[in-house]
Design a protein around this nucleic acid. Structure first.
Lengths: 310, 310
DNA sequence: TATATTTGCATAAGTACTTATATAAATAGT
DNA sequence: ACTATTTATATAAGTACTTATGCAAATATA
């Protein structure tokens, strides 16, 4: 199937290049999936500037062992992205001193946990038993084909999303996440505002529950189970658009179903709008079925009612 | 010194790319040094076409696991170089069937011994004790720095150049190699022609000697020691321009010195022209010293006389 | 102290790929 | 048999580098 296997060492150069390209592309996809405006090709320079605090172009060339124009090129990209700043060297006017900008520092904070996961998964992909160089390439390619680095990293990131219980310190996030999507698709009805700003009063104190999805110390999603005596109504589900693709909605939903079952309820109901196809698809996927909609619903935007039998 | 060592697995992709780039560039330099119009990037496709005899673009994409446009691109380059030809598939008009052209087949013949050496040296560079992937990269980089792949291959190629004795079957090569450089730098004097066309009569039968440099069954250089009773005159040294850089002149010279010493002569003399700086440099390097030139020399072009004391 | 060389960086052009998309022929579905 | 889909290849534009070269500031040399 794979001719490179036969080309032996003469295909070695091309082969390594191909593998590194594949891995780089996977890492690129990860950044994209996380809506992080970063690229693996920027990593060596960005990380070095971050580590060294202040460094010149020539020193970067030395350290990274790549050509000086390549360094200049990426430094320019990083400047354009606002991640680094340059200052002049007082003793040597030819020199450019490079350091992280404030937003660069913020990005490092954000990237560090992701880099950690990437590193671990990359290590798992490449570093098994000691063997020959060619064999390493072969084995790594095979593992990459079984399950791509992208999938490996994304799964680890998904696993890092925790579902936690309501705490009043998260009230703002509860409100903001919901307002965000309401404004995007509909408009915020007065009753929305009232409920979202007082989750404790309207939901928790009425024997309801609120769960949050937490990723890297950030609240990235939420959902509420409103207790209306007859059953739980699943509502206020919102996921930060920055973290779509991490299957956070699925996780929140799983938690709601598990929790409702534990509490002994026979069903969960929900109201939604057919325009929200990804959400509707998720509901159907976990077993919700469409039922007839009542005339008098809380919200104007509701045009579908669904029920899940537990 | 080398930051990539610290970037660990996250720099892995860039690191592999860097190493493969370095190796590819070295191989490129080898082709250039041998005046072979070929490029390592063409190798996977060229070799595959050579092995498979006839193959379509789609099949190449499959076998080599690179993108179809990349295959198309290199196929076009190979067509432009006249190394491959395309024919239409009778059953499927969309398909292009690719095979080696006559000059492609000739090139394969020429390249095969070189590929063999490259393969062996590359193997020596990369395939030592089994160890981790990262360590392989590190070790290979280190070895490459100690002595580059280019140097390793070139040395092996140089070692493959043999110096052999005169045989009348090589008379043509003796003549052609000399005429080639004479025409390039001066013109062929009548006496030149007479001697070059009858080496047996003029040189061998007068107790002189002729040596040839042989590489891959091809005569790539020659030199004569003319016996004028008083000493040997080193003359008729010529190296095929296709094989400059293999230090063939040096090898021929070494042979002449060694042979003259064995024969018990006290010196070697030679006549040359100052315009031929690389040759003059070689003469000086092995110990020849300039002496005063006589008025009446065989050749008009001679404007320097040198003597080596053995 | 003037001049030549070296150093630090920028710019331009080239290379070996990639992805995205187009086009024409072949095949499948109705 | 007609249309829709798939397949085989081509084309265009982008990416991450490279080498070659230029220029200005710094340093060495005379």
């Amino acid at each position: 199937m794979d001719k490179f296997l036969e080309l032996q060492e003469l295909g070695f150069g091309s082969r390594m290049k191909r593998l590194s390209d594949t891995l780089m592309r996977d890492v690129k996809k990860v950044y994209k999936s996380l809506y992080i405006d970063f690229d693996p090709s920027l990593f060596p320079i960005f990380k070095t500037v971050s580590d060294e605090k202040i460094i010149s172009i020539g020193e970067l060339t030395q350290l990274l062992q790549i050509s000086q124009p390549a360094v200049t090129q990426f430094v320019n990209i990083l400047i354009k992205k606002g991640l680094i700043v340059v200052s002049a060297d007082k003793n040597d006017k030819r020199k450019k001193l490079i350091s992280l900008s404030e937003s660069g520092k913020t990005l490092v904070q954000k990237l560090e946990p992701v880099w950690k996961i990437m590193q671990e998964e990359l290590t798992a992909l490449i570093d098994r038993e000691p063997t020959s160089f060619m064999n390493h390439i072969r084995l790594t390619e095979n593992r990459q084909q079984e399950k791509s680095l992208y999938e490996r990293i994304m799964q680890r990131i998904r696993d890092k999303v925790e579902i936690i219980d309501f705490d009043s310190s998260y009230s703002n996030e509860f409100c903001d996440l919901n307002i965000e999507w309401l404004e995007a698709y509909f408009y915020v009805e007065p009753y929305d505002k009232e409920v979202l700003e007082n989750p404790k009063t309207y939901i928790i104190d009425n024997d309801g529950h609120i769960f949050f999805a937490k990723f890297n110390d950030e609240i990235v999603g939420t959902v509420a189970l409103i207790n209306n005596k007859e059953c739980y109504e699943l509502s206020k589900m919102a996921v930060s658009p920055k973290y779509r693709g991490l299957k956070i909605g699925q996780k929140l939903m799983d938690k709601c179903i598990q929790f409702s079952t534990e509490q002994g309820w026979e069903k969960i109901k929900l109201y939604s709008n057919r325009i929200l196809t990804p959400a509707i698809n998720l509901y159907r996927k976990v077993g919700f079925e469409e039922v007839e909609l009542e005339k008098d619903v809380h919200y104007e935007r509701s045009n579908i009612k669904m029920i899940l039998k537990l």
